[in-house]
Every structure is written in C-alpha cells, then in structure tokens.
Simulated assay, not measured.
Amino acid sequence: MRSAITIGGSALLLAGCVSAPQAIQGPEPTPPVISTAGLERVLGHDARSLEALFGEPDLDVREGPGRKLQFAGPICVLDAYLYPKGRHEPVVTYVDARQPDGRDIDRASCVAALIAAKKR
C-alpha cells in the first residue's frame, strides 16, 4: 500500500514540473484596412458641407468636442463623426453606415444613395 502512495505522490510531483506549451511567435497582427474610396465627398468636410450634400440631419448629437450628424434615407442611415482639427471647424473624421434594419451596408454606397435621394 505504501508503494502505491509513493507512486501516486511521485506522479503528482512530476505533473507540477511539466511546463505549459509555448505559443508560437509569429508576426504582429496588423489592423484591418478600411477603405475610404467613395467617401471623398464626406471625409474631411464640415457640417455645412454635409447639409448641402444631404440636407438637414435627422440627428445632431454633441458630446465634448465631438459631434455626430445622422442622415437617414430609404436605403440607409449614415453617421458622420466630426472632430476639430487644430483651431479649425470640426470636420468628418469617420463615417459609419447601416441599412434601416441595422444590417451592414457599404459606406460609399450609402453616401451615393443619400445623395440620389436628396436629388429626387
């Protein structure tokens, strides 16, 4: 019986000596590239330019130095995020788009759809 305890105790001690497998070192992950093609009429522009392009925003939210303008049409909803650059007027630094039911839509397609809807 004593030898069974000794064998069991030895097995537990050896188990503590086993090291965890080392992770394979690979290249650092790179952030995804987000295309801005088709967004030239929005990115870098101020609120007045957006209103001239899309009409009056459906939502205008200000938080600290930032501002979000939301434009909604039959095809999509566009959120434009404006932040000040130096001492200049806040400009669009990022846009997000979705279909009215919340599903994703290409941002440039949404911009084009909102411009087309305003022209009607």
Rank of each mutant, 00 (worst) to 15 (best):
F71A: 06
Y94E: 09
Q25N: 15
R103E: 09
C17G: 14
V61Y: 08
P100G: 02
F54I: 01
V61G: 06
C110M: 04
G26K: 15
Q70W: 03
D46S: 02
V42M: 05
I24C: 08
V111I: 03
A80P: 07
G55D: 05
L114G: 12
C110H: 14
G9L: 15
P32D: 00
A20E: 10
D96G: 12
G16N: 05
L50H: 00
A4P: 03
D58W: 02
P27L: 13
A80M: 03
G55C: 06
R107N: 05
V33N: 09
Q22N: 10
R103Y: 11
S35V: 04
H88F: 10
L53I: 01
K85Q: 15
C76T: 06
L69E: 00
T30Q: 14
P27H: 13
V61H: 10
D101I: 02
A52P: 09
V111A: 05
G44T: 02
P90Q: 03
S49N: 14
P65M: 10
A15Y: 07
P65R: 14
S35L: 06
I5S: 14
S3F: 09
I24T: 14
G9C: 13
A97Q: 01
T6R: 13
A4K: 05
S109V: 00
D104H: 11
Q25S: 12
D46Y: 01
Y81Q: 08
Q70C: 06
R87Y: 10
S35P: 08
E51L: 02
D101M: 05
H45Q: 12
A20R: 13
P27F: 11
V61D: 09
D104F: 04
M1D: 05
A113S: 12
L50I: 00
G26C: 08
I105R: 12
S10N: 08
G16Y: 00
P90D: 00
Y81H: 10
S109G: 13
A47Q: 04
D104N: 15
R2S: 14
T36N: 14
A108R: 02
R120I: 02
L50C: 11
E89N: 12
S49A: 13
V61P: 11
D79W: 10
I115F: 06
G44Y: 00
D60S: 13
G86W: 01
D79P: 07
G44K: 01
R103V: 04
G55T: 01
M1H: 12
V42P: 15
S10R: 03
L78P: 05
E63S: 12
K118A: 08
A108G: 03
S10H: 07
G44M: 00
I7A: 13
L59H: 15
G8F: 11
D96Y: 08
A11L: 13
A11W: 09
A72I: 01
S10Y: 05
P31W: 06
L50Q: 01
E40D: 12
V33W: 08
S10W: 08
C110P: 06
Y94Q: 13
Q25R: 14
S109E: 11
Q99V: 12
K118I: 01
L12W: 14
V95L: 09
G66N: 13
A117L: 09
V77I: 12
F54C: 03
V18F: 07
E63L: 08
K85A: 12
P29T: 01
G102D: 11
G102M: 13
C17F: 09
G26D: 15
G26Y: 01
R120A: 11
L114A: 03
P29A: 11
G16E: 00
D106V: 00
